[in-house]
Write a protein that binds this DNA or RNA. Structure first.
Lengths: 264, 264
DNA sequence: GTCTGAGTGATTGTATGCAATCGTCCCTCT
DNA sequence: AGAGGGACGATTGCATACAATCACTCAGAC
């Protein structure tokens, strides 16, 4: 987190940290769908008692990251790949609403009707995020843009002054982030074995085959990138453009295989 | 709850009941926005320890019904009256998605591709809800229709097979129910003093004034009803129809005054 | 008179302990 | 050999206990 210089300092409480940490691990794929998560193991892992872990798990269950059955235990929920399109549609409705409300509030602010104390803080935060994004673009370092992008959208929601919409959008963003990460992982998993095959073709001295394999490999990676981060205009290669158009959602149906225990 | 005859019986756990009970009290207006809710008082009220109450409060906070500050306490959140339109817009996007997915799943079912075990259970549930609604309509007892309506929409979401969308829709429905209830309450509050004035006019023997007051009173109630439950076609009275059209949202900006403690 | 400061009561955050429940293994019976 | 049943281990659900923090009050100084 590159900013928040003057956030109101809240007392140190463990539960939100635990909840965030578990959510991060789920989104990052450290905890894979279907993995059993026991309160005791998580408590040991984060060096706290079971109580904050319990509450964190409850929260994550209500966010949809954890499936929990009474007296049985909790597992990481399956990735909602089927809902990808729907989640995007709902997010669109949400973002339209927050943007409109934020603009209306800005207009009311300029006309002097109201001046909430949070407004300028969030506004400064957005400015900082924009600057940070520009800096990364200038350096050609595009990876952080995804996160910054999400943060800006959340900040706009906060600017709208609607806690309800902000809350919903935040939950939705986490889910979509999860989808992206899972897509990236499974894509990487699918692309990885190619390397050995390509090297094998090189070893065998089959130049044409190695070239064809490498071409397919790079092309799939390119299509995946375009699908993931969007395109301002269709790819110059008509075949790639068609492939990108073919599955706009980007997430396939595969669910990552889940280990049954939490690794130490 | 008039149905769910063959639901899978889950072991008795206190926390969900507590959470539902508190949410019900908030929506029903027993706990008004701004009211302080301490864990101890709620624990005493529902005769459980603080732990399930804590977890219920956490859940309600993530649902947006409770505002909680560390080491300070929890209060009932303000009613999101400003977000009414936005919430309806988001719900529309959600319901469109669930209906489409449910229909697609039905098509896949009929073509024999898959036959999930839950499908028929939920389908029977919807049938029962429709029958119950018809029965109430036949008896002219329209009050329960609001709840049945919500249940049908949730059931359709469950039919879509998407836990994510169902969860979001459920949260949104609770919020909208809250808005309706608050609107009804404040409307009732506004209409109530009329009675005394009308009776006063009657006592004074001012027939014309009593008639005019009663006409205004009944008319406002009628407009409120039409605004709340919608109209299939514009009201026959053009003036009423215009008034109904005037504020389609229905919820005004007033926030119910909150008592500072939970009554015994 | 107003402001600063410590003290106190109340409330939450976390830890630990115990009972209830579930899944599973193994034994027994058919 | 397969099915049914009982006991055990593991895990969660809840209650209680203690520590940490905050809001508020009241005394005292400027």
């Amino acid at each position: 987190m590159p900013l928040s210089p003057d956030e109101p300092v809240l007392p140190a409480v463990v539960r939100p940290s635990v909840q965030d940490a578990i959510r991060r691990d789920i989104i990052a794929g450290v905890l894979t769908p279907g993995a059993r998560v026991t309160e005791a193991s998580l408590a040991q892992r984060y060096d706290v008692s079971r109580v904050p872990v319990r509450e964190a798990l409850r929260g994550l269950a209500s966010e949809g990251f954890i499936d929990s059955r009474p007296h049985v235990g909790s597992r990481v929920a399956p990735i909602p790949v089927h809902d990808a399109d729907d989640l995007f549609a709902v997010r669109e409705a949400l973002e339209v609403a927050t943007a409109r409300s934020a603009a209306r509030r800005a207009a009311a602010l300029y006309s002097g009707d109201e001046s909430p104390e949070d407004w300028w803080r969030i506004r400064r935060q957005i400015a900082a995020l924009l600057d940070a994004g520009d800096a990364h673009v200038a350096e050609g370092d595009l990876d952080p843009l995804v996160g910054i992008n999400d943060q800006i959208h959340i900040a706009i929601a906060e600017l709208s002054g609607s806690a309800t919409l902000t809350q919903l959008l935040r939950q939705l963003s986490w889910k979509i982030e999860w989808l992206y990460a899972a897509d990236m992982q499974s894509r990487g998993k699918r692309l990885w074995p190619d390397h050995r095959v390509i090297v094998g073709a090189i070893d065998a001295g089959d130049g044409e085959r190695a070239a064809a394999l490498m071409a397919a490999h790079v092309r799939e990676s390119r299509i995946g990138y375009l699908r993931r981060y969007g395109v301002t205009r269709p790819s110059s290669d008509p075949e790639v453009a068609a492939a990108v158009r073919r599955q706009p959602g980007g997430a396939q149906d595969a669910v990552l295989p889940g280990a049954d225990t939490v690794g130490p």
